[in-house]
């Protein structure tokens, strides 16, 4: 799998993502500056977390108009894989590559803690090393992770099986208490219709080493590496 991480100004989890990808693939992913315009020979494009352009407009709104974005649209149109985490998810919604929006957290405070995610379907290139219904832990760190979409959009996402992960209790119940940021229907991550674009708020890349408290996030990257092995 050839992976590339797009570096927008203000992004800050690109190194975390590189560590996770290197663990899974055995080599460093390419770093691509947002002012570049070409993506060649890349299987997976990753939009990492952070505060692109300071998130001073809406989160991800400026990055969604970066020079690199047409190439990412084209990559996805050709069926290439795209992973957007946290700010990366926000950029994907701002760019219209995934539906909905990420609003301020319901409590209006930044949330930094581990959450539990329930895997809604495991038959994708991203979730192949998890089981459907499996619960895994991931750190979250965001002020704007409250997933919102119109109810017909939510119905369509659910109907088409495009909900990737939901906030859950440790035992897998979909509860309000587990839904700290107030997301509609506990949605933590969604897929594009072809299941090749994934956006999610929490950070599986920060839980890939037992020393950091666990390896719950590692199957996501291992699964991708296996699915996209050349």
């Amino acid at each position: 799998m050839k992976a590339a991480i797009v570096v927008f100004p203000g992004i800050n989890r690109e190194r975390d993502m590189a560590i996770a990808l290197q663990l899974a693939t055995g080599h460093r992913p390419q770093m691509i500056w947002h002012k570049e315009t070409v993506l060649e020979g890349i299987d997976l494009v990753v939009l990492p977390g952070g505060f692109s352009s300071g998130d001073y407009l809406r989160c991800g709104a400026m990055a969604a108009h970066s020079p690199i974005m047409p190439a990412i649209h084209e990559h996805a149109r050709r069926g290439g894989h795209v992973l957007g985490v946290c700010n990366g998810f926000q950029i994907l919604t701002e760019a219209g590559m995934l539906p909905g929006a990420l609003l301020r957290n319901a409590g209006l405070r930044f949330l930094s803690m581990d959450c539990h995610l329930r895997v809604e379907r495991a038959d994708t290139d991203f979730a192949g090393h998890y089981q459907t219904g499996q619960v895994f832990r991931a750190p979250m760190a965001h002020g704007d992770g409250n997933y919102f979409a119109a109810s017909d959009t939510l119905d369509r996402l659910e109907g088409e099986g495009l909900v990737a992960f939901r906030y859950a209790s440790a035992s897998g119940e979909i509860t309000n208490a587990a839904n700290r940021n107030g997301s509609q229907r506990n949605i933590a991550g969604i897929y594009s219709p072809n299941l090749r674009v994934l956006g999610l708020m929490p950070h599986p890349e920060d839980l890939v080493d037992p020393l950091m408290g666990g390896i719950d996030g590692k199957p996501l990257f291992d699964g991708l590496a296996a699915a996209l092995a050349a």
């Binding site: 800050n12 930094s112 760190a141 950070h203 890349e205 920060d206």
Partner: peptide, 8 residues
């Protein structure tokens, strides 16, 4: 309210 994990 503080990001304590960034950097991995």
């Amino acid at each position: 309210q503080y990001d304590s994990t960034v950097g991995g």
